[in-house]
Design a binder for these strands. Structure first.
Lengths: 190, 190
DNA sequence: CCCATTTTGTGACTTTCGTCAAATGATCTC
DNA sequence: GAGATCATTTGACGAAAGTCACAAAATGGG
């Protein structure tokens, strides 16, 4: 059981203290998820977060029989459906391991207890939410500000890891275009 | 000076306590913003939030000489550029009063002090960020999941107030389409 | 290493939306 | 309330992306 990578992640992204981290340790657990397995499916109420030590998840909607990818969780990110986790309403998302994942799991109920026990951890949660909000707002702006070609370049420059590891068919819907369109954009460049 | 509407808002959306509210009172101030005035322009570093008691703001990008609206702040919402506010980097946004606004202003520095003084308010900030994240994620998903027509209907059903009060030219870019397209979508319906 | 399967690329065609230009309708000011 | 300004609608056209069908390339078990 090695949770160091999660601590490093929190130290980089938030104002976590040594005491805060020690308070968190008891509710962490390690989990392996096989490639192809789901940690969340549509209709379920999301009960946990999974910090990705290694591997990759994708989160997607099933809309009119089509999979529309909404997010990719690679190393050093936290896979969850934040909306379902907080509202405790059924999720609309599927979260699937695209590669075998070694993860650190935190349960919602434990987290709520933890916040009561160590109130200074609230700031850590706030910092993480703040980063997520910035990321989601940028993602949303991609669609109103940029053309499909520009959206692809944004990914090239800002999240090249996704382009290297995630099949293009999944990336296309994440960027709001058809598989074929992404393929044609790529042809023009190289 | 009447801050009740802000307290009511926080009670509805967050877990704020009476003590928390009282700790917050000293850093609140009232402000009137005239129609057409800007509370933030591109390049500025955002230093405050403005709770809207009455009136309306729009936040927009200036991209290639075009205004692309990113958000509307009507009554009972908090106008700010969250990214610039937290990162203290220059903003890419303009925030303009579309109607005269009666607002309640909170300064970033005061807020940071307040969090130190009343740590339980961290949870309030966390609750608000959580709601914003959910909203932004839904907004982003509109572009990957839905057609322009469906996006318009989403607004009709979920934020009719925007359609009633905001000029259609501003709504079009918010929904990621040309003015003319929005006009044609509306023709088909009525 | 080969076959089956999956993923990516390509061409032809269609549909949708954007652009431009102009007209109509609404609003505001003096 | 007349004129000016601003907002919305409309039509004609073109560009961009989607769809469908299939080919090529890559992957991965056995």
């Amino acid at each position: 059981m090695n949770f160091d990578s999660f601590f490093t992640f929190l130290q980089e992204k938030t104002s976590i203290s040594q005491q805060g981290w020690e308070a968190m340790l008891p509710i962490l657990s390690e989990q392996k998820i096989s490639k192809g397995d789901f940690i969340l499916t549509e209709g379920q109420i999301c009960q946990k977060l999974c910090f990705v030590k290694s591997g990759a998840f994708r989160a997607f909607y099933l809309q009119d029989g089509k999979e529309i990818n909404n997010e990719f969780f690679l190393e050093n990110s936290i896979a969850t459906d934040h909306e379902s986790l907080t509202t405790q309403q059924p999720s609309r998302l599927y979260i699937e391991a695209l590669e075998s994942v070694s993860g650190i799991v935190l349960h919602r109920d434990d987290l709520i207890e933890l916040y009561k026990l160590s109130p200074d951890l609230q700031a850590v949660g706030r910092d993480l939410l703040s980063l997520l909000l910035i990321e989601r707002n940028r993602y949303a702006s991609l669609f109103t500000l940029n053309t499909p070609t520009e959206r692809y370049h944004y990914l090239l420059e800002n999240r090249p890891d996704i382009l290297e590891r995630i099949p293009l068919q999944f990336i296309a819907s994440y960027l709001g275009m058809a598989r074929e369109t992404l393929s044609r954009i790529r042809r023009k460049i190289s």
